[in-house]
Simulated assay, not measured.
Amino acid sequence: MSESQISVYLVDDHPLVLEGVKTLLHPEADICVVGQANSGPEALAQLPAHPEVQVAIIDMNMPLMSGVELTRMLRTHYPQIRVLVLSMDDEYTQIREVLDAGGMGYLLKNTTREELSTAIRTIAAGRTFFSQEIGNTLLQHSAAVGTTPVNLTAREHEILRLIAREYSNNLIAETLFISERTVETHRKNILVKTNSKSVVGLIQYALRHKLIP
């Protein structure tokens, strides 16, 4: 494996799925599967030997430990690993559990090689990724929750729009000619005002109330 490759670890209790994912990713020169496990406990036992792992692709429904439980464990003990969940289910409650546990992506198991590899690259870069079906589920649920939008300051509106464009704190600071610490403070205030637990939730809120185009 070269330093430029994204190292991926797979966790699924179905060997056929593991082989299928590896086969899908094999043609991708910048992605390398460095390990796999059939359960959450097995993954946690093996990961100390794989400090290079950047992205973990996890099955949602597994015996011994669910995908949500494993995601929580990884976010606690291996915060450098970004989690992408694979599932047969696009139910909102389940998607929300994954996001609250710290997952950065959610795909259905009917995904294509192009979508899977794009998701891995996106998550490895620190951004979230959802298949179109999952994105639609999130937006539909957001639209069904009608609340009065909070009052954001002009500066908070500016920062919110840049967050929606996936700008980093550093890039926002450079764009608005303010310090990165000031950006972080505004970001926290926006999350508190909108009662959002994550950037994903914040974007949902902003779309629902037409705060961003």
Rank of each mutant, 00 (worst) to 15 (best):
Q140F: 12
E97P: 01
L139R: 06
M73V: 10
R155P: 03
G103Q: 06
V145C: 14
V83T: 00
L152Q: 04
E114L: 13
S117F: 11
E69R: 02
L84E: 01
Q94D: 10
L107F: 03
L70N: 00
F129A: 01
P79L: 10
L108Y: 07
Y78L: 07
L116N: 01
I120P: 12
A144V: 00
R113V: 04
D100S: 10
P149D: 06
Q80A: 15
T112D: 12
E133N: 12
A124G: 00
F129W: 08
M88C: 06
L84C: 02
Q80R: 11
L139A: 12
V98K: 01
D100A: 14
G126W: 01
S131Y: 03
R96Q: 14
R82P: 03
L139M: 11
A143E: 12
T137P: 07
G105W: 01
G135T: 03
L84P: 08
A125D: 10
Y106V: 03
R72S: 13
E69D: 15
E97W: 09
D100V: 03
A119L: 09
V150W: 05
N136W: 08
D89Y: 05
R127A: 10
T137V: 15
E156Y: 08
G103V: 04
A101R: 05
L116T: 01
T111D: 02
A101Q: 06
R127W: 06
R82C: 00
T153G: 09
T118I: 07
Y92P: 05
L108D: 08
G126C: 03
D89S: 08
N151W: 02
S142L: 10
L70A: 13
L86Q: 09
I163E: 11
A124S: 07
V150R: 10
Q140A: 13
L99P: 05
T128C: 12
I134Q: 04
G105C: 09
V83F: 01
M88L: 11
S87T: 13
